[in-house]
Amino acid sequence: MVWVKHDYDDIPGTYVFGGRRSAQGYPINKMCMSFNHDENRQKFKKDPRAYCAKFGLSEEQTQAVIDEDWLRIVQLGGNVYYLAKLGIAGGGGTVQSMGAQMTGMTVDEFKAKLLAYQKD
């Protein structure tokens, strides 16, 4: 059994979401989908570890979720569209603050980087 390589696998700093990541990350992303219901967001907040276990996340995935280590979550198969739901369920992570963390910047630095493209 082997995952066939794609030429988009080698784009620096980019984790293209295909079969390999979707298979690995399925429990994370399925948990994120459950956050479309507020009662599930509350259950997650009360006991994140138990909630992750319900969806069968691996220990590594669970720890990354609890640590809100967004880059690690993406590397373990999380898809950013679904992670946006996790950011809010966990209390205040936005797609922009996730992006800042993944690039090692503060949110203000990240916003400044985006603004700088106006000069291109």
């Binding site: 620096p12 700093g13 993944m102 690039t103 985006l114």
Partner: peptide, 14 residues
């Protein structure tokens, strides 16, 4: 736009 990875925040105006 790119939302995730170390390349998050990429825009290409040209």
């Amino acid at each position: 736009h790119q939302l995730s990875g170390e390349r998050a925040g990429f825009i290409n105006k040209a």
